[in-house]
Simulated assay, not measured.
Amino acid sequence: MSTTHVPDVLAEIRDDFLELPEAERLQLLLEFSNELPAVSEEVSKHPEMCERVAECQSPVYIYVEVQDDVVTMHATAPPEAPTTRGFASILAQGISGLTTGEVLAIPDDYPQSIGLTRAVSPLRIAGMTGMLMRVKRQVTQKR
Results as ranks from 00 to 15, higher is better:
Asp109Tyr: 05
Pro111Leu: 05
His74Tyr: 12
Leu116Gln: 10
Leu30Cys: 05
Leu36Glu: 14
Leu20Asn: 12
Ile125Leu: 05
Val60Asp: 00
Asn34Glu: 12
Val71Tyr: 00
Pro21Gln: 08
Gly97Asn: 01
Pro79Ala: 13
Val71Cys: 02
Ile106Asn: 00
Ile95Glu: 01
Ile125Lys: 04
Thr83Phe: 11
Ser58Ile: 01
Lys136Ile: 05
Lys142Met: 07
Thr83Ser: 15
Leu20Tyr: 13
Phe87Arg: 09
Asp8Lys: 11
Arg137Ala: 12
Cys56Leu: 02
Gln141Thr: 07
Arg25Lys: 10
Ile90Val: 14
Ala77Gln: 06
Thr140Lys: 06
Arg85Glu: 08
Leu123Cys: 02
Lys45Tyr: 04
Thr76Met: 02
Thr84Phe: 05
Val70Leu: 09
Glu12Ser: 15
Ser89Val: 04
Gly115Val: 13
Pro21Leu: 07
Asp8Tyr: 10
Lys136Met: 11
Glu22Phe: 14
Ala54Phe: 10
Gly86Tyr: 07
Ala81Gln: 03
Val71Asn: 05
Pro78Ile: 07
Asp69Trp: 05
Glu31Gly: 10
Ile90Asp: 08
Leu30Pro: 01
Met133Thr: 03
Leu98Pro: 02
Asp15Ser: 15
Arg85Thr: 07
Glu80Leu: 09
Thr84Trp: 04
Ala38Gln: 11
Leu28Pro: 13
Leu104Tyr: 01
Glu41His: 05
Cys50Gly: 14
Gln67Ala: 06
Glu80Thr: 11
Ala54Met: 10
Pro111Lys: 04
Tyr63Ser: 09
Gly97Lys: 01
Lys142Phe: 03
Val103Gly: 00
Ser89His: 08
His46Thr: 09
Ser58Trp: 01
Leu10His: 11
Met131Cys: 01
Gly97Ala: 00
Glu51Met: 04
Gln27Asp: 13
Pro111Thr: 05
Ala38Arg: 08
Gln57Phe: 05
Ala119Cys: 15
Ile13Tyr: 15
Glu24Asn: 14
Val103Asn: 01
Asp68Val: 11
Glu31Met: 12
Thr117Asn: 12
Glu102Lys: 14
Ser113Pro: 15
Asp109Thr: 11
Leu30Ile: 10
Arg52His: 06
Val120Tyr: 04
Leu98Lys: 02
Asp109Phe: 03
Leu30Arg: 12
Arg137Lys: 12
Gln67Asn: 07
Thr83Gln: 14
Ala105Cys: 06
Arg14Pro: 03
Leu91Glu: 08
Asn34Arg: 12
Val103Cys: 02
Met1Arg: 11
Ser44Asp: 13
Arg25Met: 10
Val39Ile: 07
Ala75Gln: 10
Ile95Ala: 03
Arg118Asn: 08
Ser58Pro: 06
Thr83Trp: 12
Met128Tyr: 06
Ala119Ser: 15
Thr117Asp: 14
Met73Arg: 09
Asp108Glu: 14
Thr117Phe: 09
Ile95His: 02
Asp8Ser: 08
Cys56Glu: 06
Arg143Trp: 05
Cys56Asp: 03
Asp68Met: 06
Arg124Leu: 08
Thr140Glu: 06
Val71Leu: 00
Lys142Leu: 11
Gln141Tyr: 10
Leu116Ala: 12
Val39Lys: 00
Glu51Asn: 01
Asp68Pro: 09
Ala23Tyr: 15
